[in-house]
Design a protein around this nucleic acid. Structure first.
Lengths: 358, 358
DNA sequence: TATGTCCATGCAAACGTTTGCGGAGGCCCT
DNA sequence: AGGGCCTCCGCAAACGTTTGCATGGACATA
């Protein structure tokens, strides 16, 4: 609104050229100047309340010192810690972040990408990429991109993801060790890399334990939310009455599943064991206490940001293509030994829904 | 990285002057041009993959079409819905948002404010303001500001807040109606407007019900988190053994309080009733089901954004100085009639902690 | 035909920086 | 004493837009 004081004003006041002021204020170029001049300039700049105009600088240098952060939805409790982890690395490095929510909608995703590019972001962290996004590889040529929590396979785009396979394997082992032999995987959406990876992990892990269909079943959720969790759990229990455990692709599906189980008059874990993935905030407070795979949420964001920083500052630096963050199992109370005799009860109404055997 | 196509390139390709291209691409100025020229320019611009450079435009027009969003911490589940509400209004209007976390640290707050100003944001939504921030009034002269969820009193800065007083009053009434006559308020931090307003509301509401110290007590939390909730609950129960209900300034304090109660071998609500404020996500799933004040989280953000939009586009427009959003009580299971005879048990150890009577 | 009006477009400055280049002065060396 | 080098700083262009003003032509009017 009001005219703000510019480098030019400081120059006039100090009696030097604007270039000198610019150098005096730039950490790199400061060495080129005599100490006294630098001191004088900085002093009067402070006194005048000078505030550098980064958009002007950005125009000149083609570096805006801002990055774009794409996530599906900030109200999904999985993402705030990731975002915060990013900011923890970005902000100290002088970068600000523009945050956008894609809602997993490819159109929105494309539009928001454009929004970011128009603002001249120096890089993008994409935690919202839909699987096999062919655009993204193209876009990665225009600006450094790192994907977080998800990846697009074979794209060469650096990504920081979790050890989905390890998490699923360990979890299946937990169920197996508890005595379960009829386990259904409620898989995540087929267009998200986490959905796919965890599903594949389940298949191979099951094979490793000599568990085969129909002892292992699978049903694919269309979204990662509680309603889908309920729907899938209901379908699973109806179609596969022998099932004693539901290994869910994430916590929200698991919460929905537990709810569905209760609506059937059954209890978790006494009647059905359920497991989750992610260990989202407050999960420990929700009964019965979901046994889940804990991911390093902050670190996923932080590491992704650090990799992006490296790519932005040294474009030719080699960075790991995919960084896999370790996961661990949080044991709570949603796993119990299988209930003997379960399954008899529902067998009568076993009408088939669309459900793939896995 | 690569040279991107500019207005100049489009001009050369089309055989017109850059000014003409600029006008053809600007919705306002388009009318000045002949329809054919506009059509031709837009076509070749599209064909060339032209992407407007908003930082250059921002330098020239002093409008960057981005706003700053300040919150204490995105991992605090209260804020994501608010932020999302903002984006819902901002993004369709063509604005992108830079998100920063202040951690309620005044130094950080000041520094991040500068970060935003350097980026030339057109306006700021501040959901992180600490009470009575004298700077802010100064800053509000440089750029349009709207505060959300909190306010700085008497500043003239437009704010969108919740009906704290109404929520507290209704909640106290609930407890009163259930039979409680010895109620302690676990107040929020004294440097946040919500902490103050809810505390004052408690005092006047109590007075209205003819409840006076020592029947009403108060203890002030230093932060809005579970640990403080526990600490305060413990202190309250120890100092005022007659207390049968804890009216907490927000949900997180309440969660901590319930935990503390359990650690004492007591149960909520049978032994002690507890209430919250905000109705944060997943609260419904946490036992025993906290009775709380529901605020319109998305709407707070949305309305704040709408007010800011108005201030940014028509600086002289009159906007309401404070918008108070309605709240409502969500009845769950954390209120029960007071347990007769409570308090005897602990009286022996009643050592006084720092605790104000209210 | 000369004059005035209006429409569509060109011209050029400006926004606030950064940075390659060059120049002035001081110093050292031969 | 002259030449070379180094240090410190000024000069001016450039980044990609927007926009007030100027201009040229078409057309109508006197």
């Amino acid at each position: 609104m009001k005219k703000s004081v510019t480098i030019k004003d400081v120059a006039r006041e100090t009696g030097v050229h604007v270039a000198t002021v610019s150098r005096a204020l730039s950490p790199n170029a400061r060495a080129l100047l005599s100490a006294e001049v630098v001191a004088k300039i900085r002093k009067t700049a402070d006194a005048m309340g000078y505030r550098p105009n980064r958009v002007a600088a950005g125009l000149r240098t083609r570096r805006t010192m801002t990055v774009g952060v794409m996530i599906p939805d900030i109200t999904n409790t999985l993402f705030p810690p990731i975002v915060r982890g990013m900011e923890g690395a970005l902000e100290p490095a002088g970068y600000a972040s523009i945050l956008v929510n894609t809602d997993n909608d490819p159109d929105r995703e494309a539009r928001l990408f454009d929004v970011l590019m128009q603002r001249g972001v120096d890089g993008i962290i994409d935690a919202a990429v839909t699987h096999m996004n062919p655009h993204l590889e193209q876009l990665a040529k225009e600006v450094p991109i790192v994907t977080a929590n998800r990846m697009v396979e074979g794209s060469g785009i650096p990504s920081v993801i979790n050890d989905d396979a390890g998490g699923i394997r360990m979890m299946l082992q937990r169920l197996f060790d508890a005595g379960h032999r009829h386990i259904c995987h409620i898989a995540g959406p087929a267009d998200l890399s986490t959905g796919i990876q965890r599903r594949e992990a389940f298949e191979t892990a099951a094979k490793g334990l000599d568990l085969k269909p129909p002892d292992t079943a699978m049903i694919v959720a269309e979204r990662y939310n509680e309603d889908e969790g309920s729907r899938c759990a209901l379908a699973a229990l109806e179609d596969s009455p022998d099932v004693t455990a539901l290994l869910c692709a994430n916590d929200r599906l698991a919460i929905g599943a537990i709810d569905a189980i209760a609506s059937l008059g059954l209890k978790c874990p006494e009647d059905i064991s359920v497991t989750g993935f992610n260990d989202i905030p407050f999960l420990d407070l929700i009964p019965p206490g979901l046994t889940t795979v804990q991911i390093l949420q902050f670190d996923v964001g932080r590491i992704a940001a650090e990799i992006l920083l490296k790519r932005m500052t040294e474009p030719d630096a080699r960075v790991p293509e995919t960084t896999i963050m370790p996961v661990s199992i949080i044991d709570r109370n949603s796993i119990a030994p299988p209930k003997p005799g379960r399954g008899r009860r529902m067998r009568a109404s076993g009408r088939s829904r669309k459900m793939k055997q896995g």
